[in-house]
Design a protein around this nucleic acid. Sequence first.
DNA 1: CACGAATAAGTTGCGCACGACTTAATCGGG
DNA 2: CCCGATTAAGTCGTGCGCAACTTATTCGTG
Lengths: 151, 151
Amino acid sequence: MSRTQAEPSEGSLLLDDQLCFALYAASRAVTARYRPLLDELGLTYPQYLVMLVLWEQDSISVRELGASLQLESSTLSPLLKRLEANGLLRRERRAEDERSVAIRLTGEGAALRERARSVPVAIGDAMGLTPEQDALAKQLLRLITANVTDG
Amino acid sequence: MSRTQAEPSEGSLLLDDQLCFALYAASRAVTARYRPLLDELGLTYPQYLVMLVLWEQDSISVRELGASLQLESSTLSPLLKRLEANGLLRRERRAEDERSVAIRLTGEGAALRERARSVPVAIGDAMGLTPEQDALAKQLLRLITANVTDG
DNA sequence: CACGAATAAGTTGCGCACGACTTAATCGGG
DNA sequence: CCCGATTAAGTCGTGCGCAACTTATTCGTG
């Protein structure tokens, strides 16, 4: 038995050779791991990401939010409506530019931050990477994102 | 100026400290990069993954397909219906177990494989990783998936 | 200042993704 | 052999994610 495992060739069509699939599977698995934690906060995973941005910098526009998260207004607009309906934020047209909408946290939205503090720790534990592996993974993922976005 | 950059603490709520966000962003960016290529084949990205599995092993059940891709029947059933409507496969109840449905490629579905050969190469080029980085990324992503799935 | 181009947000349509549930067939212990 | 438990596939409802488009506002150049 000289070869029990095929050499993954450059243009393989085998699912398990595909980095893209490893990425897709990992992303969904991590999101699934977040789900029960975020359920307690009444948030979905994309809503949680929006809240992370707003806790960092309140009163930003939909456009700026989209730039941070790499999401279109067609995704964000309905999502923000749901967060507004849940009492976490308000949306108001900006006086200085009526095209723009400022997203502002309510007291409730700002307060949720404290309850969210434990979430990244719990997820970090679940991922079980060493600090070095974590940093390396982030670095590689950002490199992929940068290379794949644009030319 | 002793510190121009904050040390990302264990429980940071900053978006850019989150590995989960790097993962989510990379996954969507890669899928977006696939889109124009897959459009020419008349496939979405999840449909392409299903076809990868079927090109590897034809005539498998929905359950086996779900195990390979980590997807529920509630996701696969409608997706497979669309692929059937597009003439790429057929679904037929198995005689030996009437609960199970065998997915079989049509001639057209099998033939599409040749047109798909160039896709992984093009994506590999776009990601722009060295073979070592590619292997390392896959390894880390699988580790994350494994750790996060289960206990 | 006028007016076409650009920009911001939102709407619509479609295809995932998944939880909760349903239906139908098979399994397995008493 | 029967009947409750399990299993396979599918339906339904909700929330993304994005392309294509619309509406309203602002910009910029003649």
